[in-house]
């Protein structure tokens, strides 16, 4: 039997509940014949708005819980609920709007909600996809293991490089001292270092034509093999950084958008109550 996933947790309990909510809201909207075209101010509009606002608070609860309790309790259960009710929230908010958009704070609140949902959807995708890719990439090892191996190879490279001509030695030393894993946000996300010194060292060591004696040639061959191994380790380490960045990036949008969304929601409610 397949392991229950994030979305299918607890026999789709939250999926069913959120689906029911959406179905009831949609049915009510379809059957409702308000005296004026549907909008947030009809009885159904108010009802949908109140339910949607309560859902927003419920959704926030996950963020608050994770921040202050570090995800104690059954996190999988609450994330599953968060995802499904988040999707339901967008349907409810859309029906609440009666499909009326304009250049105003009401539409701003709606658009922020949609943006928040979009980042959340990406987050769900990331959580469903990236962890498997991370496991495929790292295997039994951890990120720290890779770094340890790289440091070890660097140490050995340093010893071998002593015996090579200066120019060749400098190339290797650059690879040892200037190779980088990570970087700024986009570098991390890309999982690459375009001007990687280790890559340059591999290429340079592969080139023949240096006037080397037999001992130096042996060192050079050894270095070439070290640098090759280091490069493959680097690729995996950088990919791991990229995966973690992709797994985490959306939350840097999702959380601020959630806060902004609540601020706009407060302004939206204040505006509708202030001028009735």
């Amino acid at each position: 039997m397949q392991r229950p996933t994030l979305l299918g947790f607890n026999r789709h309990r939250h999926l069913k509940a959120a689906g029911l909510l959406v179905a009831v809201a949609t049915l009510a909207y379809a059957l409702d014949r308000p005296p004026v075209p549907s909008y947030g101010g009809t009885w159904l509009g108010y009802a949908l708005g109140i339910v949607a606002a309560l859902l927003v608070l419920r959704q926030l609860w996950l963020g608050v819980r994770r921040r202050h309790h570090g995800g104690s309790g059954n996190l999988q259960d609450s994330v599953s609920a968060h995802v499904h009710f988040g999707a339901a929230l967008v349907v409810l908010a859309t029906l609440h709007s009666g499909f009326h958009l304009g250049w105003n704070v009401h539409t701003l609140a709606y658009l922020l909600l949609l943006a928040m949902l979009a980042s959340g959807v990406y987050g769900v995708f990331a959580y469903l996809r990236v962890p498997r890719q991370m496991t495929d990439n790292l295997g039994e090892e951890g990120f720290a293991d890779l770094l340890l191996k790289i440091a070890e190879l660097d140490e050995r490279a340093r010893a071998h490089a002593l015996y090579l001509p200066d120019e060749l030695g400098a190339v290797v030393m650059r690879a040892v001292t200037q190779t980088v894993v990570g970087g700024k946000v986009f570098r991390q996300m890309s999982g690459r270092q375009p001007d990687c010194p280790t890559r340059a060292a591999v290429r340079r060591l592969h080139e023949a034509g240096d006037p080397l004696d037999a001992a130096q040639s042996a060192h050079q061959r050894e270095l070439y093999s070290i640098m090759l191994r280091k490069e493959s380790l680097l690729i995996r380490a950088r990919r791991d950084v990229a995966f973690r960045a992709r797994l985490g990036f959306w939350l840097y949008l999702h959380a601020p958008l959630a806060v902004a969304s609540v601020a706009a929601l407060v302004a939206h409610i204040a505006a509708t109550l202030f001028y009735r």
């Binding site: 790289i150 440091a151 001292t177 980088v180 894993v181 990570g182 991390q188």
Partner: peptide, 19 residues
Amino acid sequence: DEAILARAPASLAAAGLSK
């Protein structure tokens, strides 16, 4: 040797992103 991780941030938070 400077640790390889000390040369560049390897997490989004270390790269200056903030929620």
